[in-house]
Write a protein that binds this DNA or RNA. Structure first.
Lengths: 185, 185
DNA sequence: ACACTCACGTCAGTATCTGACATCACGGAC
DNA sequence: GTCCGTGATGTCAGATACTGACGTGAGTGT
C-alpha cells in the first residue's frame, strides 16, 4: 500500500459532482468536497484553479481534438462546413457518456456561476476555431463569425442530444442544427 | 450640504474603472475602490452584487431596449433580419460614447474573469432575443440559432467599431457584420 | 417637536484562494 | 542496505470577497 490512496484528482471530481448534485454548487464548500475525497482543501486547489474548474477538466483536450478535426477537414470545404465537420467528430467523444453528460449539464444548468465558466470555455473554443480557420486562409472576420456560428449550433445540438432518448446519435443533432442554421439566411 | 456626498454609485463606478485601468482588475481590492470613492467596502456591495458587476451597470436596460427594438420590427422580416434591425438601434446608445466604450473594453479585454461576465451578459441577451423571436412565432430552435448568430455579429461589429476612427458610425459595422455572416452559408 | 426613513457605517463572521514550509513513502545511487 | 532526492500531500497563516445584524444621524413630513 502506497502512502497515498491513488487517483486523488478523480476522487475530487466524483465528490464534487456528487455534492453539487445533492445540495447545489453554492451550498457545498471546498472543504466538504476534499473531506469526502479523503483529502484537504489545500490539495483541491493544487488540482483545480478554483471551485468551478473541477467540472471542466478535459475541456482543453476537447478543444484540441476539435481543432485537429478542423485541420484535417478537406481544404475545399467552405469555412462553415469545415467547422461542422470538425464538430461532428465530437460524436465519438460523447458516444457512451450520455448519462454523465446529462448529470453534469443539470448541475451547470442550475447555477449561473457555472454557466459563466461554460460560456468561457465555449468562447475559447470559438477563438481556437477562428484561429484554425485563419490558418486555412479565411479572413479574420469571416473566421470569427463562422466559428461563433458553429459553436452556437453545437450548443443547440448538445442540448437537443441530451434531451433525446438513448438511441439517437450526436451526429444527427449536429447535422440538424447546422441545416437549420443555414436555412435561416 | 447633505449628510452624504451625492452620486455614490457613480463615484464607485468611476473609481473602479480608474483603478482597474491603472493596476488591473485583480490587483485592486474593493476596499481601495470604496476608499477612492469616499465610501466603505460594505456600501460597494450594497450597489453591486460583486466586484465585476460595477462594470456592467445598465446592461439590463441595454438588453431591454434591444428586445423592444425587436418587438417593434416589421412582422414580415425574417428572424435574422429582425434581430439585425433590433441591434442597429443600439447605434444611438453608442453614438457619443466611443471613448468610454474603448476604455471599458480595454479593461475587460485584459481580464478573463471580466470576459466571463461579459459573455454571461451577451448570453442573457441572446436568450432574451430568442424568447422575443418565439413570441413572433419563430420555433424554438430557429429562434435560438438566429439570436446567437445575431449576438455573434454584434460582438464582431462592436470590436470592429471601437477599432475604427471616430467618424465611422456603429450602423456600418453592424451591417457589414450581418452581410458577411449571410455570405458564409 | 416628533417619529420615521433611508443612505451609509461598524463589526463580526464565513468561504475562496495563496504562499511557505513540513512530512514521509518511494525509487534510485552507491 | 543505507542514503538521498523527489513528489504528493498536510499544516498553518493570511489576504480578499462577500454577507448579516445592527447602529447612526441628517432629511422629511406632520
Amino acid at each position: 500500500m502506497g502512502r497515498w490512496v491513488p487517483n486523488a484528482q478523480g476522487r475530487l471530481i466524483e465528490a464534487a459532482l456528487d455534492l453539487y448534485s445533492e445540495r447545489g454548487f453554492e451550498q457545498t464548500t471546498v472543504a466538504e468536497i476534499a473531506q469526502r475525497a479523503g483529502l484537504t482543501e489545500r490539495t483541491f486547489f493544487r488540482y483545480f484553479a478554483d471551485k468551478r474548474e473541477v467540472l471542466f477538466l478535459g475541456s482543453e483536450q476537447f478543444e484540441r481534438s476539435i481543432v485537429e478535426g478542423l485541420e484535417r477537414a478537406p481544404a475545399a470545404l467552405t469555412p462553415l462546413d469545415a467547422v461542422a465537420v470538425a464538430l461532428e467528430h465530437t460524436a465519438t467523444f460523447f458516444a457512451d457518456r450520455r448519462a454523465h453528460a446529462r448529470r453534469r449539464y443539470a448541475v451547470i444548468d442550475a447555477n449561473p456561476e457555472l454557466q459563466e465558466r461554460e460560456r468561457q470555455k465555449l468562447g475559447a473554443l470559438a477563438a481556437a476555431l477562428a484561429a484554425a480557420l485563419q490558418r486555412r486562409g479565411v479572413k479574420a472576420t469571416s473566421a470569427r463569425l463562422a466559428a461563433e456560428m458553429g459553436v452556437a449550433a453545437f450548443k443547440i445540438a448538445f442540448e437537443n442530444w441530451i434531451s433525446q432518448p438513448n438511441e439517437s446519435p450526436f451526429e444527427r443533432s449536429i447535422r440538424n442544427a447546422f441545416e437549420e442554421l443555414k436555412s435561416l439566411t
